[in-house]
Simulated scan of single mutants.
Amino acid sequence: MIKKIYLSATLLAAVLIISGCDDAFAPKTPFVPEYVVYGIIKGDSLTQTLLLAKTYDVNGTNPGFNTESPEIAGATVKIRRKNTTVTMRDTLLERTDTSRYKAPIKAYYSLGFVPSYGDTLHLEITTPDGKTLNSRTIVPPSLYLEKSFYNIGGDRDDNLAGSFTLTWRIQSGFLFLPRMQIIYMKDGDPKQRIVEVPYYYTRINNQDQAVYPFLSSNPYAQFRYDAIDSALVSISRGDPAKNTYRILRANFRVITLDEHFAKYYSSTNGYLDALSVRLDEVVYSNITGGRGVFGSYMLTQETFVFNQEYVESFGYRAR
């Protein structure tokens, strides 16, 4: 009986080895070249850039053997908005990581093209070998921000939530990246200085760790007052001359990613819900005739003042 089981196991192993020679189980499938596009239209810039690359094959199974950069120059790249068409030009960008590719990055750019909220932008690329790639994005809106109090610190002791909160109303499908900075000066130095404000602090290994704003689908930004307190304290840490510091304002900004950029980011960085696990997730693409993403984002900025008594409680001067 034991001998029969052993023989059965041997036959099964042999079948698996033979099956492994079948094309369906080959470690390297037949190569089909594809074009890949990465273009994000920036709502806060006069300069737009786009990358076009082509997948490549190598001898063997190690893609690291390829030393020729995959970016493609010489294509015709057009962006159409209503009755206006912008043709992007070839350019070279600095390559910060030269461990694999040494030459500058081949890219495409345009100057003076500024998108507006609600614009439908059509992308059309004709590659050097005559292939056509298409895509589309709708530029997301600027946000109307609602704040929990008209200044920062005025409700420090009466705020039940213990936070300075900014909210915005917008349809679903977007991702948001907030950021808040405190702008201040020190007597004798004409230069304005900046300190970043975290959302809150968490305790890790008996040490307080700052948690800064991150990309999410939440239509709000909530800064705990104890985190704002800590940011203000850090401004003059180690300097007893507190009254030589002047707190000018807080700058808040939030970047809104359009539907395609948001889906692409989610597919390459995992689901936004930290408790979700997906094993069948594929990289999102909205490029017809190829792969990649053509998306857009919009920047919203606003300035907030600090409550004078709140600032003076740290020994500083307000504005």
Rank of each mutant, 00 (worst) to 15 (best):
K3C: 14
R253Y: 09
S142N: 09
M185E: 07
A262D: 01
K54E: 12
Y264T: 02
D280N: 11
P115V: 01
M298P: 05
V293Q: 03
D239T: 08
P115F: 04
Y316I: 15
L232K: 07
N59H: 03
T84A: 07
G112R: 07
R95M: 05
V233R: 10
N251H: 01
I204V: 12
I255H: 15
K102A: 02
A227N: 06
S99M: 15
S267E: 08
L215K: 06
G112V: 14
S172G: 10
G130H: 04
L299H: 10
Y199T: 08
A103P: 00
Y199Q: 12
K4V: 11
R95S: 06
A53E: 06
M298G: 06
Q222L: 07
M298E: 00
V293S: 03
L92A: 10
R317I: 12
L299D: 03
N151L: 03
V77N: 04
E196I: 06
T55H: 12
I125G: 06
Y220V: 04
S266Q: 12
L133D: 00
P190N: 13
T67A: 13
E259A: 10
F252G: 03
S8V: 00
V77E: 05
S217M: 02
F25G: 14
S142Y: 09
L51K: 02
T132V: 11
L232P: 01
L143S: 14
R246Q: 10
K4R: 15
V37Y: 08
T87M: 06
K131D: 05
S234F: 14
